[in-house]
Design a protein around this nucleic acid. Structure first.
Lengths: 356, 356
DNA sequence: ACTCTCTAAGAGACCGGTCTCTTTTTCTGT
DNA sequence: ACAGAAAAAGAGACCGGTCTCTTAGAGAGT
C-alpha cells in the first residue's frame, strides 16, 4: 500500500499521466474535471492519482486561470470584538462560496494599510474587503479598484470611491442617543473615539477621517446645534486608541470642574474603559454619569448597571460585504451599491436624568 | 505621465525588459534583486518598471521558489475572543517576518478542519498553525507534518504528534482552582465545557478530545479524588457549544435539588452565560454560587461581583506558536519543542465559602 | 463502401516569474 | 600589451498546471 515513503518533491499531473500511461493533457482533463474523457481512461487516471497521492498545486492552477480563490481582508485590529465578529461573517460567506481569506491587520495605520493592499494585490487575491483607516487617504484603494479586482468597503465608506460599501446608519444612531440624552437634561455630553488627529484635538468633523465615526460625530453635533447647544466640538475627544489612552482622557474629564454628565463611547472597548475608570473614580453610573456605548458587546448586559448600547449588526456587516464581493467575483457588473444596515438602541440602565 | 490607461492585462518582466532594452533575465535580476547588474542598466530597468507601473506577480514567484510567503491558520472560531487575541499574536509575528496569514474557521468540526488543511496545503502555504478540534483525530495533521511543511499546534497538543506545540499549563491551573474551591468547603463543583461527546454525556477524561480541556478535566478530577470526593465525573458537563446550550445546561443544574455550589467555566463565553443565567434565576454570586472562569476576558473585572478567572497568556500563545513556526521556516531543524506557558489565578469576588 | 461528423487523446504553447549555463565585456596584474 | 579572472548580460529551460490546436478513431448517414 504505502510502499514509497512520501517524497518531499510533490507529484504532478505529468507523474500521474506517466503512471496511467496517458498523455499529460488527458490526465489534466481528468484531474481538472474539464473536457471529455472516456470512462476507462478516467478510471485509470483516478487510480494512478490515488496511488501516487496526487495533490493539485493551486498556485500553478491560479497562475493560468488568473483566479486565486482568495479574498484579501484588511481590518483595523482583529483583536477588537467588532472586527472579529465581522470577520466571522466574512469567512462564513467566503468559505461557502469556495474562497479562502487572507487577513491583514492595519492597526488603523494608513501606511500599513497601503502596504497590505499592495501585498494582497501582488498575491493576486480575487477581491478585497477593506475597512479603510482614513477616508481622506484612499489613493491606494482607488488603485486597487482600478486594478480590476473588486473591492468592498466595510463599516467605512468614501464618497470619492465608487465601490460596493456596507455601513451602519451611524449618523442616525448618534442622533437618536444624543436626542435622548438632551431630553434627559444632559448638556455636558462627551463623545470619545479612538480616531485621532495630528495634534490630538478635535475641531471640525472633517478632522475625523474614519467614515463611520465622522458620521456619528456629525449626527451628535447636529442634534446639539438643533437643541441650541453651542460649542459642543470641545466635548469630542479623539485619540482613545488604547485602554491606557482612554483612561487618561476619561480621568482628566472626570476630575475637571466642568465634568460631563454623559459620555458616548464610540466602541465597546472604549465603553468598557469608561466604565472601569468612572467606577475607580467613585462616580456612580447612571446617577452621576450616564454612559452609552456603540457596539452591543456581549458583556454590556451583565455589568451593574447594564449599559445602554447602540446595537450594530456587526456579523451582518461582514456577511453583507462578503456577499457583495462574491457577487462581483461571479461577474456582477452593475454600478456600486451602498448598503446601510439599521442599528438599534438597546436601553438598559446606564442612562438617567442629568444630575441637578 | 499617465498616457496609457491601466490595462487589465498586467505588465510582466518581459514588458519591462523590452521597454528598458535589455533581456528578460537582466530585468528579472534587477526586479528580483538577485545576481549582479551594472548601475546604468539597473537604473534603466527601474525607470522602465516605474513607467509601466510594474507589479510583480507573487504567484509566479512562489511557483518557482516553492515558497508562498503564507502561513495557514486554522482555529475553532475567530469570533471567540480567545482566538481573536491569539490570532493577533500570530499576525503580528507573521507580518514582521514577512508572511501573510490565511485564516480558516473550523467551527471545531474535524471534517471542516481536514478540508481546511487540504485547501491550505493545496495553496502551498509555507507552514501551518492549527488549534486541533480533536486530539484523537489527527491523521490529517500527521499528513500535513509529513508533507514537509512545518506545523505548530496552538493551545492544544497531541502526544502522538511530534510537532512544535504551545499550550498553557491547563492542568495545573485546574488543580489550583479546584483545591481552592474544595478548601472553601465546596463539594458540588461543576465543570462546564463546549467540548462535546457523541451522546453529550461525560464519563472519562478520554471522552474529551480537546487537549487543553482534557488536561483541565483531569486536573479537576484528580484533585477531587485526592480530597476524597468520588464520582465527580457526573459534574463534568459537555456540549456548551453555544450560549443557548450553556443556558440550558446551567438552568437545568440550578433547578435540580442537588444544585452545584460552584461552577468552573471552561472559557469566557461560557463564563458569561453562567453569570447571566444564574442572575436571571435569582441565584446570588458568590453567596449561593461561586464562579471561576478560564480566560481573563476584559469584561470579567467589571461585573458585580467581578469574576475570578484563570488568566491565560492568550496573545503570547499565538505569538509563540508563530515564532516557533517562523523559526522552522527559516531552517530550524531540531526536534519538536513543547512550550507550556504559565497561567495565573486572578482572585476577584465571585468565589466564596460554600453555602451552609 | 465511403465520406462526414463527433468524440477521445496527444503535442505543445503558455502563464510570469527564477535560475543555470553561456557568451561577451571589463578589469586586473605583470 | 596581453593572458587570465571577474563581472555583466543574454538565452532558454523550468515550475505545474490550463488550454488550444491537431490528429486518431468510432459511429452515422446514404
Amino acid at each position: 500500500m504505502d510502499q514509497n515513503p512520501p517524497r518531499s518533491t510533490s507529484v504532478t499531473v505529468a507523474d500521474v499521466a506517466r503512471k496511467a500511461g496517458v498523455s499529460k493533457a488527458t490526465a489534466a482533463r481528468v484531474l481538472g474535471g474539464y473536457g471529455t474523457v472516456s470512462d476507462p481512461v478516467r478510471d485509470a487516471v483516478t487510480a494512478a492519482a490515488r496511488a501516487l497521492d496526487y495533490r493539485p498545486n493551486e498556485l500553478a492552477r491560479s497562475m493560468t486561470t488568473g483566479r486565486s480563490g482568495t479574498i484579501g481582508v484588511v481590518v483595523g485590529d482583529i483583536e477588537n470584538p467588532f472586527f472579529s465578529l465581522a470577520m466571522r461573517g466574512i469567512t462564513d460567506v467566503a468559505r461557502q462560496a469556495g474562497f479562502t481569506v487572507i487577513l491583514i491587520n492595519s492597526g488603523e495605520d494608513v501606511a500599513v494599510e497601503k502596504a497590505a493592499i499592495r501585498t494582497l494585490l501582488a498575491k493576486r487575491v480575487d477581491g478585497l474587503i477593506v475597512s479603510p483607516a482614513k477616508e481622506s487617504n484612499v489613493d491606494h484603494l482607488q488603485e486597487a479598484a482600478r486594478s480590476g479586482r473588486p473591492l468592498a468597503l466595510l463599516d467605512r465608506g468614501s464618497e470619492t470611491l465608487d465601490v460596493d460599501t456596507v455601513i451602519a446608519d451611524d449618523r442616525h444612531a448618534a442622533e437618536g442617543i444624543t436626542r435622548r440624552l438632551i431630553a434627559l437634561g444632559h448638556r455636558r455630553i462627551a463623545y470619545i473615539t479612538a480616531c485621532d488627529t495630528p495634534d490630538h484635538v478635535f475641531r471640525v468633523p472633517s478632522d475625523v477621517n474614519t467614515g463611520s465615526v465622522r458620521r456619528r460625530v456629525e449626527g451628535f453635533l447636529g442634534v446639539c446645534r438643533e437643541a441650541g447647544l453651542q460649542g459642543m466640538e470641545g466635548w469630542v475627544r479623539v485619540g482613545a486608541i488604547t485602554p491606557d489612552h482612554t483612561r487618561g482622557i476619561v480621568s482628566a474629564m472626570l476630575q475637571s470642574s466642568e465634568r460631563p454628565t454623559a459620555i458616548i463611547a464610540s466602541d465597546s472597548v472604549i465603553g468598557l474603559e469608561v466604565f472601569k475608570t468612572s467606577r475607580a473614580a467613585g462616580i456612580a453610573i447612571p446617577d452621576e454619569l450616564s454612559l452609552v456605548s456603540f457596539h452591543d458587546a456581549d458583556w454590556t448586559s451583565v455589568t451593574s448597571p447594564p449599559v445602554t448600547v447602540v446595537r450594530q449588526p456587526v456579523y451582518r456587516l461582514g456577511e453583507t460585504a462578503a456577499k457583495l464581493l462574491v457577487e462581483r467575483l461571479n461577474g456582477y457588473e452593475a454600478s456600486a451599491r451602498r448598503v446601510v444596515l439599521q442599528t438599534e438602541l438597546i436601553e438598559r440602565a446606564s442612562v438617567a436624568d442629568a444630575p441637578a
